[in-house]
């Protein structure tokens, strides 16, 4: 992807108590794109977001966010940390209004903007409730609302949909889509791989504090051995028979072996339905009784495994 870089990280490193959490990360995020950070817990996603938001100083490397000549990066970057960060005794409206006014808006304009943000996030009806009386999902959306108070050019969102139910997620997704259309650069961390696949323009794969790859979800999926994934759970893991089973299953299902996860054989296949039947038949004819034979569309979890050799919890 090319365009106007809104965020540029060059060789960014950070350690906590001598333990490296980020190592030499080079990354650019462009105007009007959603860049998703993908990785397991401890991969460095939150640290990376905190550094971009200016909440944490890197130990090494440089971060550039265009600030139109202003000294304070915070006026241009909205930040939604992972945990709740609200005033429990203020209403949703009061604290969004406070946030907008903290960026220099006058009271009347701040009120209008606060109402608009809360409405976009489906919180208009609860705007008069104190934060301490809001549900977990409402609090999460209020946290996102606060990060949008300044109409920032860069939004750093750490797990923005964590704790949201199926009804609330589309609201947030629509809101983020509007922000992207407005030209806002959104850098977000998420454990929801379907959300990443559906929303992100590009995905940054992080593992052990290192940037493994950055690409579009489609390109990452194309890098896999097939469009689908065949998994065969065997009742007993007999390492002596692995090669034999792998041989006839791959041949019958026209599959490419990917790996063994314990007693589960994982293969890349091109379609979902036919390989299951063929593999099951091959197993039966060789006297092997599996616990399950299944196929599914390949996912970003498969991409992560292919790139790092590690699993990621969906």
């Amino acid at each position: 992807m090319t365009g106007v870089a809104s965020v540029e990280l060059r060789g960014v490193s950070r350690a906590f108590d001598g333990e490296p959490v980020l190592s030499g990360v080079d990354l650019s995020a462009f105007q009007g794109e959603i860049l998703a950070l993908m990785g397991p817990n401890g991969a460095g996603k939150s640290t990376l977001l905190s550094i971009v938001a200016g909440q944490l100083a890197p130990d090494g490397g440089a971060v550039a966010v265009p600030t139109r000549g202003a000294r304070d990066r915070r006026a241009f970057v909205g930040w939604c940390p992972q945990g709740s960060s609200v005033f429990g005794d203020l209403t949703a409206r009061e604290q969004v209004e406070l946030a907008v006014r903290a960026y220099g808006e006058r009271r009347a304009a701040a009120r209008t903007r606060a109402e608009s943000i809360l409405s976009d996030l489906g919180l208009a009806a609860d705007a008069g409730k104190r934060a301490s009386a809001l549900s977990g999902g409402m609090l999460r959306r209020l946290n996102v609302a606060l990060s949008m108070a300044s109409a920032p050019s860069v939004l750093c969102l750490d797990e923005p949909t964590a704790g949201l139910d199926a009804e609330q997620r589309p609201l947030l997704h629509a809101c983020l889509a509007r922000e992207r259309a407005r030209g806002t650069t959104i850098v977000m961390a998420s454990h929801d791989l379907d959300e990443i696949a559906g929303m992100a323009d590009r995905v940054c794969v992080l593992s052990g504090g290192k940037l493994v790859r950055v690409d579009t979800p489609e390109a990452l999926m194309r890098g896999l051995g097939g469009a689908a994934c065949l998994e065969i759970d065997l009742a007993e893991d007999d390492p002596a028979r692995r090669a034999e089973i792998e041989g006839f299953v791959l041949q019958a299902a026209e599959a490419r072996a990917r790996c063994w996860r314990g007693s589960t054989l994982v293969c890349d296949v091109d379609e979902v339905l036919a390989p299951v039947a063929r593999a099951a038949e091959a197993l039966r004819s060789h006297g092997v009784v599996p616990l399950a034979v299944r196929a599914r569309k390949a996912s970003l979890a498969d991409v992560f495994f292919a790139l790092t050799g590690r699993t990621i919890d969906p």
Partner: peptide, 15 residues
């Protein structure tokens, strides 16, 4: 109370 609730973390992201 505001440090404990994370509200101060939010405020430090404001200019």
């Amino acid at each position: 109370r505001e440090i404990e609730s994370g509200a101060m973390r939010r405020v430090r992201s404001w200019p």
